[in-house]
Computed example of a mutant assay.
Amino acid sequence: MVVAAVLMFTISTFDLAVMLDYTIRSIVYNDPRTSRKFSGIANWWGLTEFCNFVVQSFLGDAILIYRCYVVWSRRKYLVGPAMLTSTTGIICGISAAILGTTAFHQTNSGKDLTPLITSMLVLTTVTNFSTSALIVYRIWNVRKESSRYRFTVSESHRQDPLVKAMRAIVEAGLLYSMSLLVMVILYSLGHHAQVPVSRMIVQIIGITFNLVITRTAYSRDESYATSSIIIYPLRAVTINTEVLVARDSPSEGEK
């Protein structure tokens, strides 16, 4: 998790640096390479940002699949479809990046890469939604089964750690999935808003990764007390008490 956090931070920072360089060149220096005819991934700015997007998406999918794998007691057959969709989406992204380098100066390269990029976005969305749903269902099912053997001393169910975990995963999953869905729609329509949204998604992937950790981390300062007991029917208990009195034998004078 530490390695993943460092990688995501590095990629996000590098993506911001590339975007800042592109903005300065296009606004301050009026670089002709930043004009509309070089938009998309037909220049090194767009190509680099697209590669950042692909790598960040791969890290996000890999961590989410691993979490699902652990939560489901390391059952490989449950994460198999998610691994398939994620791998296929990454292959589409890598293929689009490779084709983008060969068509570096072609203004119509974006049209040729549309099926690959659209497939990558859709498959990434499916992977994120399916794995998040599996994790939430697993936690909800465990909480339901274990509710017969535990009681919670708290003011509300919000302080239940399992409920907090489900809420954090749902929030992170919806944040990521909705961002990808918006990106798919904008890219399909060819809207220029796809550029800032794609840059936001690179940052959102890292945010959702840390959101689950910070929201589900155990804190000693939490004001709830949770105990687990096994409930048995009450029975009458009989206690036998025996009293043994010892005394010295009488002396000859007393006799």
Rank of each mutant, 00 (worst) to 15 (best):
V195M: 04
S188Q: 11
R67T: 03
T102P: 10
I27A: 10
R67Y: 03
V197T: 00
Y218R: 13
A133W: 07
F129W: 07
W44I: 11
Y176M: 15
F129E: 09
I185L: 02
Y77P: 09
M1S: 15
L134P: 02
G60Q: 00
S119I: 05
I213D: 10
T208K: 01
W44Y: 10
I169C: 06
T216H: 03
G80L: 15
P81N: 03
D248G: 12
R33N: 14
L78N: 06
N210K: 10
E171W: 06
Y149F: 15
Q194A: 07
V243Y: 10
F129C: 13
F151L: 09
G190I: 02
T102A: 15
T238P: 03
S228P: 04
V182C: 14
T23K: 02
M19L: 12
M8F: 07
N141W: 10
R199A: 04
A96I: 00
L189S: 11
C51L: 12
D21Y: 04
S146F: 14
A17H: 12
I94L: 08
L16W: 01
K76D: 09
G40Q: 05
R235Q: 09
S119W: 03
A236C: 10
T34G: 05
L234I: 12
G190E: 02
Q106I: 07
Y77T: 12
A4R: 10
T114V: 14
I239F: 04
P81R: 05
E242Q: 14
Y176P: 08
I231W: 08
M8N: 12
M120K: 03
I185S: 02
V212R: 06
S86L: 04
N30W: 06
L59W: 00
S12V: 00
G60P: 01
I24N: 11
Q106D: 15
L20W: 04
V28C: 11
P196Q: 01
S35R: 11
L64G: 00
A246P: 06
F9Y: 12
G60V: 01
K255P: 07
L20H: 06
P161D: 03
W44A: 13
Y137R: 15
E242W: 10
I229G: 09
A217M: 15
G206E: 00
I41R: 12
I207E: 01
T102S: 15
M200R: 06
F50P: 02
M200N: 09
V18T: 03
G46H: 00
D15W: 04
G80V: 10
E254S: 13
E222F: 08
T208F: 00
V202F: 00
T102Q: 15
T127I: 03
M1W: 11
Q56T: 05
A97I: 00
R220G: 15
W45I: 06
L64E: 01
L59D: 00
S227L: 12
L211K: 08
S251E: 10
K37G: 05
S130T: 13
